[in-house]
């Protein structure tokens, strides 16, 4: 895993923490990156995750955690700059390119990411995955949305409700 250019300068080397996925894989990562998660930030501020202890994450499997950390490491430098007010346009464009690429993934992976971003309370990632789902929904009919998101076929009651809605809001449908 490539480390970002510099930490925040504490003691010369960046402080590292260890995260342990539900399937017992250990991930060593800079505290600054892990702290993008509101949940982890509290533990880390309390001094947790250092040394051999590690922070167990029973709700996140290793595949998802490695994806989440990829996001955190990429975004940590900008976050350390307070949302990067002094970031160059090139930096911002690079992050945007990264984000677009990052959510260009399988639906099952996307769903795992949504849950992980929610459980770990990673603001930026939550926004990113929400935008991805919003883009998948836009311009589609209720049935198309259900299919896109892999919902089961509607029950007769649900179908009746959908029809009633479409009748009432005729102007929103073609």
């Amino acid at each position: 895993m490539a480390a970002p250019e510099s930490g925040d300068g504490n003691n010369g080397a960046a402080r590292m923490v260890t995260l342990i996925s539900s399937d017992n894989t250990r991930f060593e990562v800079e505290a600054a990156a892990a702290s993008l998660s509101q949940t982890l930030q509290l533990t880390i501020l309390d001094g947790g995750g250092g040394g051999g202890d590690g922070i167990p994450l029973p709700n996140v499997d290793s595949a998802t955690l490695s994806k989440v950390l990829e996001y955190c490491i990429k975004h940590a430098p900008a976050a350390a700059n307070g949302g990067a007010p002094n970031a160059t346009a090139v930096d911002r464009a690079e992050l945007e390119r990264f984000d677009n690429e990052f959510v260009n993934i399988d639906q099952s992976v996307l769903y795992s990411l949504i849950m992980a971003a929610h459980n770990l309370e990673i603001e930026g990632l939550q926004s990113l995955v929400a935008k991805k789902v919003a883009d998948m929904i836009k311009g589609k009919s209720p049935m198309e949305i259900r299919r896109t998101l892999g919902f089961p076929d509607p029950t007769p009651e649900e179908q009746a409700e959908m029809n009633a809605h479409m009748l009432e809001y005729g102007w929103a449908y073609e």
Binding site: I114, H118, Q126, V129, A130, V133, A134, L149, E158
Partner: peptide, 30 residues
């Protein structure tokens, strides 16, 4: 996909067309 409530709100806030939003409203009860 069963999204947490907070996630659902974030998703809906990012749908930029009120027309699409109304269609999404019909998708399922939740």
């Amino acid at each position: 996909m069963a999204f947490p409530d907070g996630t659902l709100r974030r998703i809906f806030e990012r749908i930029d067309s009120p027309v699409s939003l109304l269609r999404a409203a019909a998708t399922c009860k939740r």
